[in-house]
Design a protein around this nucleic acid. Structure first.
Length: 628
DNA sequence: GTAGGGTTAG
């Protein structure tokens, strides 16, 4: 703090000034002190709500302006009056012109004193003042210190757009440390968007020929990544290349992560290999993200390669890395291998944490291995790790799937009683469990109780219930839920329509089914392939094989693969309705995509062909069938 | 003032 008094007179102390700026509203200290004297300063302080321009400091004149003490005092007095006018007078422009000469106002010391004071109390006013001054005096310019205060004040106010106006449209010349400080604050500020960071960096380059150091580029890349803006990451990286900035391991790590977000795993992998060859190994976080990506794709060869690459590069995989691998394995149906790795890292002394335990318990639950899951739970607790909401949810889900609803409900109540809040997710899990075992009425009660407990049912809640009611053939109830979800403004998904359409087809309401299908397509939702099968089957059952035929043709035209039973069902209908020509057409089209017929359908077809004296065709079919 | 990982339908 001792340096504070000396440096206050002009040198920018970004962090220190920042702290001060926050307290300044009620303080009598300003970031910049006017020269000594000013006997009336005390009275101004007492009389006015303005933060005073108090004495006590010396202008650090660094020999660039040769002015004597009297001039200096006059400038200080002018600056003080300018500040008061700008802050208090409605139309201060005219007043200033009537009181002072343009040359006096644009004297660098005066500009600096005014800007540094205004910047500390009303940063936007300082910008307005500089713009106004520029329009009345060609000589008006903010020197490095004044510019630094201006930018700092605007940064304190998080007035990023205004700061860009200052850089673009005023004659201000902040020095590199001030620019670096400004950019860093913009990047780290929650209120600064990646677009603004990009704009600021471009502006600084275009207007001030300034290019930030690598650390600033890296933190800009990191911030854009966190904001999910990989487009900005790539543009920043382009600019880095143009500015001939040499990147480092951190840069490479961010680029790897950006590729992962963009789902360009091979590009990420190539980049990683390339930098590793040059001895640069990115951080464990970035490589872990890439590993997680390959796990998701089931590309375990690459996972293994990356682990070796990490070890060779001295960047050892950590518990996060292994957790990602175990998660990927469990999710892709390789839970046994996941469990093997889990036990392996435990043996090797990795400190297993709550997330890793939860991941493995979840994997075991999804494999239906509830005994192992429960044992792992108890092992975790014995190791001093308490389950949280996630852990409860995964094991409750497991018991629901396994049909042990009593245990699921017991754990649900336990979770609530130890203070974990019920959530939409936890309710969804219980509701699904209840529906899965035919207890839709209880599920419905739970759903209806959600709002009173402060929870909002989401699309998954509705879809789960709709599916549950459809499965029980209660399509009216399911439809009511569909209408309700639309009413509360939720966006239906494919899973909303699939069971509804299936049920309508099953009960022969083909008009309703087709109408719903149209409705979902209208919302940009692509029906599942099996939904087309339901429709074709429904038409056949309803005695409208012609329409079924039309849907089939449509499916084939769209390269959708119908189920074998659908084809057979349709052929059956066509043959039974003496539509042998159409049957042969269908047969021809579907043999092309590798289908065979059910034996019973073959008999039907051949029989019909013989009856119609089409022995030749019957023989052809027989040959085709024999060759299959 | 160290990052990053785990849960629900289909």
């Amino acid at each position: 703090m001792l340096r504070f008094g000396r440096d206050l007179s002009g040198r920018l102390l970004p962090s220190l000034s920042l702290v001060l700026a926050g307290n300044r509203a009620t303080s009598t200290t300003t970031a910049c002190s006017l020269s000594s004297g000013l006997p009336e300063a005390a009275s101004v302080k007492a009389a006015s709500p303005l933060p005073s321009i108090s004495g006590g400091g010396q202008i650090d004149d660094e020999g660039d302006h040769h002015i004597d003490g009297g001039q200096r005092q006059n400038l200080a007095e002018t600056a003080k009056r300018v500040c008061e006018a700008v802050l208090r007078r409605p139309r201060w422009g005219g007043f200033l012109l009537s009181e002072f000469s343009p040359s006096e106002l644009s004297h660098p010391d005066c500009v600096r004193l005014v800007l540094c004071h205004l910047s500390s109390v009303k940063p936007l006013f300082s910008l307005h003042y500089l713009i106004w001054l520029s329009s009345h005096s060609d000589a008006a310019a903010a020197d490095a210190k004044a510019s630094a205060f201006l930018l700092e004040g605007l940064a304190n106010a998080k007035a990023w757009k205004a700061a860009m106006v200052a850089i673009r449209s005023t004659n201000c010349q902040p020095d590199p440390p001030a620019l670096e400080s400004f950019l860093t604050r913009l990047i780290l500020s929650k209120s600064g968007t990646p677009d603004e960071v990009l704009e600021a960096i471009s502006l600084l380059k275009a207007h001030l020929c300034y290019s930030p150091p690598l650390a600033v580029w890296n933190s800009a890349l990191s911030a854009s990544l966190r904001a999910g803006r990989t487009d900005v990451v790539w543009r920043l990286y382009d600019m880095m290349l143009q500015s001939r900035i040499d990147s480092d391991a951190a840069t490479a790590g961010y680029l790897v992560q950006a590729f992962c977000v963009d789902n360009k795993l091979d590009d990420a992998y190539r980049l990683l290999r390339e930098v590793s060859r040059n001895g640069v190994v990115p951080d464990v976080v970035s490589i872990t993200k890439l590993i997680a990506g390959f796990c998701k794709d089931g590309n375990y060869g690459k996972v293994s390669e990356l682990i070796h690459l990490m070890i060779a590069g001295g960047c050892l995989p950590d518990i996060f890395t292994y957790q990602s691998i175990i998660h990927g394995l469990c999710r892709s149906g390789n839970g046994d291998e996941g469990f093997r790795i889990f036990k392996e890292i435990k043996l090797r002394g990795y400190a297993l944490d709550l997330v890793t335990y939860t991941t493995m318990i979840d994997g075991l639950c999804k494999m239906g291995r509830m005994v192992d899951a429960r044992n792992l739970w108890m092992e975790m607790v014995a190791n001093g790790i308490e389950p949280n909401e996630y852990t409860y949810n995964v094991i409750i889900y497991g018991y629901c799937k396994a049909g042990d609803l009593t245990m699921a409900q017991k754990l649900y109540h336990e979770m609530c009683s130890i203070g974990f809040r019920e959530s939409t997710v936890s309710c969804n899990i219980m509701i699904a469990g209840l529906c899965l075992h035919g207890r839709t009425e209880e599920a419905l009660r739970m759903f209806e109780g959600m709002p009173t407990k402060g929870m909002k049912p989401d699309i998954i809640t509705y879809n789960t219930l709709i599916q549950g009611f459809c499965k029980e053939g209660r399509i009216v109830k399911a439809n009511k839920l569909y209408e309700k979800l639309l009413l509360v403004g939720l966006q239906p998904s494919t899973s909303t329509y699939t069971p509804l359409i299936q049920s309508l087809c099953e009960e022969g309401n083909m008009h309703g089914a087709v109408e719903l299908m149209r409705c979902m397509k209208e919302k940009g939702l692509e029906p599942l392939v099996c939904t087309n099968d339901f429709i074709i089957n429904g038409f056949c059952e309803a005695g409208k094989g012609d329409e079924g035929m039309a849907w089939l043709v449509n499916m084939l035209e769209n390269n959708l693969r119908p189920q074998r039973v659908t084809i057979n069902r349709l052929l059956e209908w066509l043959v039974n309705n003496t539509r042998v020509d159409d049957a042969l057409l269908v047969l021809n089209a579907t043999f092309g995509i590798g289908y065979t017929l059910q034996t019973s359908t073959c008999y039907l077809l051949v029989n019909q062909l013989c009856q119609e004296n089409q022995g030749q065709a019957a023989l052809q079919i027989k040959e085709i069938l024999l060759s299959k």
